[in-house]
């Protein structure tokens, strides 16, 4: 009926006015304050990280004497990083970290995606009850279940294995909740269409929902990988040998055995084991933000 209105392009005059508006004194002050707060926050969060990087290239005697001079007097990075890599099986720790994180993530996704689909889109009587149980699961801290799990693993003679490090995290209540919320927003009509076309429920999940949920899956993967890469508590409980040590535990063993108080080398090691996480996040950043904001599907 009505002709489509032409795209509303701002005129040059309107653009100029808009810029003027941004230059008003109250705007400038407001912007400055906002940015100062953000910069302060960023410094607060990043400073330990920066300090780690700086320390990792300092000479051992400079670590404590240098005061707060941010620039090292001499570059000692090669020695420190070389020491970290040679004196400890850092690469093996990181390999362990990859195995553990990947194992945990794969099983978490295999369990959580179908569970979330059932909780979001299938009709059955005890669904509300199951969902309440999932929510309750969110409130149980991992320390509570540590002792029974430890005893169970000990009686099965499974202590000090990859399986022991991974098993408590296979069922992620958080993942079930996150994906359920995402699937809730998925249009029911598409699922109906798929059922009419002859998709099985599992195929609906794999072929239709999972591709649409990739941002949410990416977001969850970042959470999962970060927390299990960095986890010290549980590996410390069930692992004793360096063969299965994950990076933080490895660092601990490394500090005790070899370096003592060689903080430069220690920080070099820390920098090395943090790097994969930083790189992963940078790669998945866009998906991660999209997944958290959950714009849903159009």
């Amino acid at each position: 009926m009505t002709a489509p209105s032409p795209a509303l392009k701002p005129t040059a005059g309107a653009l100029f006015k808009e810029r003027l508006r941004l230059l008003r004194p109250d705007r400038i002050v407001g912007g400055l304050v906002a940015h100062l707060v953000l910069i302060a926050g960023a410094l607060f969060v990043l400073l330990p990280f920066v300090w780690m990087l700086l320390t990792s290239v300092r000479k051992p005697d400079e670590v404590f004497t240098a005061g707060f001079n941010p620039i090292p007097d001499s570059f000692h990075g090669v020695e420190n990083y070389g020491h970290a890599l040679n004196q400890s099986p850092l690469l093996q720790f990181m390999g362990n970290g990859v195995i553990v994180c990947a194992g945990i993530l794969v099983v978490q996704l295999l369990v959580a995606l179908p569970a979330a689909y059932a909780l979001a889109k299938l009709e059955f009587r005890i669904r509300p009850l199951l969902f309440v149980l999932v929510l309750l699961g969110l409130t149980v801290p991992p320390q509570v279940t540590a002792l029974p799990l430890y005893m169970g693993l000990a009686s099965l003679d499974l202590l000090d294995t990859y399986f022991a490090i991974m098993v408590p995290f296979f069922l992620s209540v958080f993942a079930i909740f996150l994906f359920r919320q995402f699937f809730k927003t998925f249009p029911m009509e598409i699922i109906h269409a798929a059922r009419l076309d002859g998709f099985t429920e599992l195929e609906i999940l794999i072929r239709i929902l999972v591709p649409s949920a990739l941002p949410a899956i990416a977001a969850f993967s970042v959470f999962s990988i970060t927390s299990h890469w960095n986890d010290l508590y549980w590996p410390l409980v069930v692992t004793t040998s360096p063969e299965h040590a994950t990076p933080p535990l490895g660092m601990m063993i490394f500090r005790d055995q070899e370096t003592g108080s060689n903080y430069g080398a220690l920080m070099a090691g820390a920098a090395i084991i943090t790097a994969p996480l930083v790189i992963t996040f940078l790669i998945a950043q866009r998906q991660f933000v999209r997944g958290i904001t959950m714009t849903g599907v159009k």
Binding site: E189, A193, R195, L196, D197, G198, R207, I208, P211, S212
Partner: peptide, 19 residues
């Protein structure tokens, strides 16, 4: 089951598979 009834349905939102 729906697929065995040999009916086809066109939905208001079209319900195309998005990806």
């Amino acid at each position: 089951r729906p697929k065995q009834r040999n009916v086809a349905m066109v939905f208001q939102s079209y319900a195309l598979y998005p990806h």
